[in-house]
Computed example of a mutant assay.
Amino acid sequence: MPAVRTVLVLNGPNLNRLGKRQPEIYGSTTLADIENSVTELGAGLGLEVICRQSNHEGELIEWVHEAADNGWAVVINPGGFTHTSVALRDALAEVADGPGFVEVHISNVHAREPFRQHSYLSPIARGVIAGLGVVGYEYALRFFAP
């Protein structure tokens, strides 16, 4: 796998509510905290990290296209789109054929409701990190370090 210089960290719906929404499941860390942490870690690993979040499927897809066009790797927490979005999966398939992507979930989706146990993205991801809390983002980023 060639050295990756840029990693796009994408967060899907409701992740802008981290620290407020269901802290008993997702903890008290905010999305801004995660973005600061991965940006700092990336700099130390020689990576440029670009962080984005959207509650809109189409916007996430456009950003995945941007990553594919630029040869960027992707770390993605797709939120609820994990279980519903064939369109996001199809966009990520292009990245999967290039530098690849890692799917991240803060909670252990396999220990939750049955509908959360299916991912349209996992079969084409380089890896899946679930249930390790926000540190999962850091592990995913380290995977792409040169």
Rank of each mutant, 00 (worst) to 15 (best):
M1R: 13
M1D: 00
P2R: 06
P2E: 07
A3Y: 10
A3P: 04
L8P: 03
V9G: 01
V9T: 02
L10C: 00
L10V: 00
G12T: 11
L15W: 13
N16M: 09
R17Q: 12
G19N: 07
R21K: 12
R21W: 12
I25H: 02
Y26W: 09
S28K: 11
S28A: 06
T29V: 12
T30A: 08
L31T: 08
A32D: 07
A32H: 05
A32S: 04
E35N: 15
E35K: 07
N36P: 01
N36A: 04
S37P: 02
L41N: 01
A43F: 13
G44C: 10
G46L: 04
C51Y: 10
C51I: 08
R52K: 09
N55R: 11
E57R: 13
G58Y: 15
E59N: 04
E62F: 01
W63E: 08
V64E: 01
E66C: 06
E66W: 14
E66Y: 15
A67R: 14
A67I: 02
A68M: 06
D69W: 03
N70W: 00
W72Y: 04
A73W: 10
V74T: 02
V74C: 05
V75N: 01
G80T: 10
F81T: 11
H83T: 07
H83M: 12
T84K: 11
S85T: 14
R89Y: 08
A91L: 06
A93L: 13
V95Q: 05
V95P: 04
A96Q: 07
D97M: 06
P99M: 15
P99F: 09
G100C: 03
G100A: 01
F101R: 04
E103L: 11
E103F: 05
H105K: 12
H105W: 11
H105Q: 08
S107G: 05
S107M: 06
H110W: 12
R112T: 09
P114L: 11
Q117C: 10
H118D: 04
H118T: 13
Y120W: 15
L121S: 15
S122H: 15
P123R: 13
G127D: 10
I129G: 06
A130K: 15
G131H: 13
L132A: 03
G133D: 10
V134N: 07
V135K: 08
L141N: 03
L141C: 03
L141P: 01
R142V: 07
A145G: 03
